[in-house]
């Protein structure tokens, strides 16, 4: 629902991550990790991203999204497993005390930059 705000935030972070003095470069690609529990819809985010990049060094950049599964670890028996449905109880010992290891991510992993006017594939 707030994907536009997130898209603008991504553009800001990516722009700030371009090394200074690197001349006329543009960001060709942003590699993003989104956890399945992050309440962000990848398709909506891509749509907003395409609008948010206009007139920035990211104009035309591709947003590559890696979706991460929800992985939990039981605090009692230390079993680690991937949560597929909306049930948060240990598969192995039925304990409700668990820690979410991954699935909440909304991280920019890296950006890929190229010289201005260079054709970039992919």
């Amino acid at each position: 629902m707030h994907e536009m705000g997130i898209a603008l935030q991504i553009v800001e972070i990516a722009t700030a991550s371009i090394p200074p003095d690197s001349g006329n470069v543009r960001v060709a690609k942003v590699n993003l990790k989104i956890g399945k529990l992050a309440a962000v819809v990848p398709d909506s985010l891509r749509f907003c991203f395409d609008v948010a990049v206009k007139d920035t060094p990211l104009d035309g950049a591709k947003l590559a999204i890696a979706e991460l599964p929800v992985v939990a670890r039981c605090n009692d028996c230390h079993t680690q497993w991937t949560i597929k449905g909306p049930a948060f109880r240990c598969e192995s010992c039925d304990s409700g005390s668990l820690e979410i290891i991954s699935g909440r991510e909304l991280d920019i992993e890296s950006i890929e930059i190229s010289e201005e006017d260079t054709h970039v594939s992919g």
Partner: peptide, 22 residues
């Protein structure tokens, strides 16, 4: 360095930052 030069000539720069960290 966290920098990778790709076949296409683009350079990948590691950022590793949470989008909502502000």
């Amino acid at each position: 360095t966290g920098i990778t030069t790709k076949k296409s000539g683009t350079r990948e720069i590691k950022v590793v930052r949470r989008v909502l960290d502000v």
